[in-house]
Simulated scan of single mutants.
Amino acid sequence: MPAERRDTVIEQSVPAPFAETMTYRVATDVRALRAFVSAGALARGLPPHRVELLTLAVSELASNTLQHTTGGGRVVLWAESGHLFCDVVDRGPTRRFGQGLPATDAVRGRGLAIVEQICDEVTVLTGAGETVVRIRLAL
């Protein structure tokens, strides 16, 4: 069972990870991004069934970036202290989590709720004109 989630918005500079990172530029090809995330997560020891969840979460966040911002974004992936972290960074508005799933007849709005359900922790950080959605999964 996932750990309790903490969703926060912090108006300050986004702290850099201490571990070695892999970065991918989100432009238009979400399929290539999924391959990048899957390979990076497997290489850092995330079990295959959790790799699928991470890949889905990042895909949802990147799709959100491409639909609601201009200029794309970037994805940063790293492992640290028994956890895999992934930042999806763009210049879009702060994301709002904790809203739950929309009504069954709603056309949109499930992406962030899906991310929140499948990750161990979701944190939103803002600063220096960027919004970062940081997700964490235990290794």
Rank of each mutant, 00 (worst) to 15 (best):
L84M: 11
A62I: 03
T123Y: 02
V89N: 03
L125H: 11
V9R: 10
G40P: 02
R91N: 07
F97M: 05
V14G: 10
P48T: 11
V75K: 01
A27Y: 07
F18Q: 15
V88T: 08
S38T: 07
D120R: 12
I114R: 04
V89Y: 00
S38A: 14
A3M: 14
G111A: 01
T126C: 05
Q117V: 10
V122A: 01
T21H: 04
C86G: 08
G45D: 09
V124W: 02
R44Y: 04
T70H: 14
S38W: 01
A35D: 12
N64S: 06
L56K: 10
V14D: 10
V30L: 13
H83E: 14
L46G: 13
E116W: 12
V76G: 11
Q67F: 15
V132D: 01
G111I: 00
D29N: 13
R74V: 06
P15S: 14
L77C: 09
I118W: 03
R91C: 04
L56A: 13
C119E: 01
L139A: 13
G129N: 01
R95L: 09
A57I: 01
V14N: 14
L33C: 03
L84C: 09
R108E: 01
T65G: 03
G98F: 04
I118G: 12
M22H: 12
R134I: 06
T8H: 12
Q67W: 15
G129K: 00
C119K: 09
V133P: 08
L33V: 03
R108P: 00
V30G: 04
I114S: 05
V107L: 07
E20C: 02
R96N: 08
A27C: 08
H68W: 09
A103V: 05
R108T: 07
A35Q: 12
G71P: 01
R95M: 06
A43Q: 11
Q117M: 13
R6A: 15
L46N: 09
A35L: 09
A62S: 13
R5G: 09
A3R: 15
S59W: 00
E60S: 00
V89C: 04
V89M: 05
I10C: 06
R108G: 01
P93A: 15
V124E: 08
A16F: 15
T69H: 06
A57N: 10
A103N: 04
R5A: 15
L101N: 13
A32I: 06
A41L: 02
G40M: 02
P15N: 13
V133S: 08
D120A: 10
F85N: 02
L101I: 11
